[in-house]
Write a protein that binds this DNA or RNA. Structure first.
Lengths: 216, 216
DNA sequence: TGACGATCATACCGATCGGTATGTATCCTA
DNA sequence: TAGGATACATACCGATCGGTATGATCGTCA
C-alpha cells in the first residue's frame, strides 16, 4: 500500500464510521481496524484524532466540491441547479438506509466545544456551503424566479439551516419518502420560488460513484 | 437530600452537561461529581446511562410542555402564538452564550444508532414537537394568516426541520444576533405567513425561571 | 426493639480510550 | 554500499469508561 493509499484509506474509513455513528463514539482503534492499518500508521500520518477529523473534513470537502461545481454549472438554469442540489442531497446521503444524515451537518452537534480546531474546520465548511447557496439565490433572483427579493446572505443561511435540519431528522427518522417530499417543499417555500415553477424541472445532475459515495 | 431531590438533581445535571457538550462525551462519573452524589446513588436510581437519558428526556419534556401550553394558550391569537414560540426558542436556548443548541434537537445526531431505547425516546419527543407545530399551523390557516393551504402535517415537519437546523447552527456559530433574525424570517417564509403580518405582533410570553432554565 | 427494605457510599472490575515508545523493514540518496 | 529518512508494526501507557459487589446508614413498621 502506498503512502497516499494508507492515508486516504484512513480518511475514508474515518468518514464512513463517523458518518454511521458519531465522532465521539468512533475510536482510533476501530478506525485503524476497519482501515486495515495499525495504530503506528495512524499516528504516523495524523498527529491526533482531532487532526484526522480536520483532514477528513478537508478531504470530504474536496470531493464534494467537485459535485457542487457540477451541480451549479452555468450550463444549468437556476431552477435546474436547485433541483440538482435537492437530488444531490437526497442521493448522496439518504439512499442507503444505513446511512442517515451527514457527518458534517451533524458534527457541530457531536463535538464538544472544547476542541477549537475542530470547530473552526466545521465553521469553514458551513461557510462554504452557505456561499454556494448564496450563488444559487442570486441566480434565482436574477432570473426572476423568486416572489420577492430580500437579504440574500440571510436567505443563504436559511437554506443552510433548513437542509441541516432535514438531514438531522433523517438521522433519527430514516423515512426516505418523507424526506424526499420535505426537502424540495421546504426549500421552495424558504426561498420563495414562484409557485408556477414548483416541481417543474427535472434534475440534470446524476450521482456518480466515487470514493466517498462508496462509503455511504 | 430526599429521594426525589437526588433523582432530580441527577436528571438536571445530566441535562445541563449534555446540553453543554454531548451525550457521548459526558460520563457517568462527571454527572455524579457535578450533581454531588456518588455512583452508588446514580445506579440506585437509574439502571444505566441510556436509561438516565431517557428519563431525562421525559423530565425535560414535562417541564417544556408547561411552557408550550402557555405559549399556545387559546387566549393568544395564532400570530401571537408563533411569536411566542420564536421568543421561547430564542430565550430558552440562546440567551446564555455558553449554551448552544438544544440537547434534544442535537441528540439525534449525538447518539449512535445502536441504542434503541434512546432513539425511541427522541422520536417521541420530536413527534410531540411536530404535534404542537401542527396545531399552530391549523390555527394560522383557520385565521386566514397563510398565503396558501397545503399539507399541514408536512408543514409541521418543515417547521421542525428548520427550527432544528437553526438550533444546531447556533451550536457551532453562537451568533445571537444572526439567529435572532433568521429564526422568525425562516418560519414566516416556511409557513407562508401573509407578508402583511410579518413582524407585526409582540410576544405575550415571557420566559420564567425554572429548574431547567437555570441549567442554561 | 429488632428486622427489613430503601438509600446511598466505597472500592473495585474488565474494557477501552487516545496516545506513545521503540523496533524494524523499506527506500532514496550520496 | 553506507546511512539516514520514511513508513510502518508491536507493545505498552495511564486515564477513564460504564457498570457492579458489598457494606453502611437510615427511616419504618411489626
Amino acid at each position: 500500500m502506498s503512502v497516499n493509499e494508507t492515508r486516504e484509506k484512513l480518511l475514508e474509513t474515518a468518514l464512513a464510521l463517523i458518518w454511521q455513528s458519531n465522532y465521539s463514539v468512533v475510536g482510533v482503534n476501530e478506525i485503524c481496524k476497519q482501515a486495515g492499518v495499525t495504530k503506528g500508521a495512524f499516528y504516523h500520518h495524523f498527529e491526533s484524532k482531532a487532526n484526522l477529523f480536520c483532514e477528513a473534513t478537508a478531504y470530504y470537502w474536496q470531493v464534494v466540491k467537485q459535485d457542487l461545481d457540477a451541480i451549479f454549472s452555468p450550463v444549468n438554469s437556476p431552477l435546474e441547479q436547485l433541483e440538482n442540489l435537492i437530488q444531490f442531497l437526497f442521493k448522496s446521503k439518504l439512499s442507503d438506509e444505513r446511512v442517515r444524515g451527514c457527518p458534517f451537518f451533524n458534527a457541530g452537534a457531536q463535538i464538544g466545544t472544547d476542541d477549537e480546531q475542530v470547530i473552526e474546520a466545521l465553521q469553514h465548511l458551513s461557510q462554504m456551503a452557505i456561499t454556494y447557496n448564496l450563488a444559487l439565490i442570486k441566480a434565482l433572483d436574477a432570473g426572476d424566479y423568486l416572489e420577492r427579493s430580500g437579504d440574500m446572505q440571510q436567505q443563504a443561511r436559511l437554506m443552510y439551516h433548513y437542509i441541516h435540519g432535514v438531514m438531522s431528522y433523517a438521522y433519527v427518522q430514516p423515512d426516505v419518502d418523507t424526506i424526499r417530499k420535505d426537502l424540495p417543499e421546504g426549500l421552495y417555500r424558504l426561498l420563495g420560488v414562484k409557485q408556477a415553477y414548483w416541481f417543474t424541472v427535472s434534475p440534470t445532475w446524476e450521482a456518480e460513484p466515487s470514493a466517498l459515495k462508496q462509503m455511504a
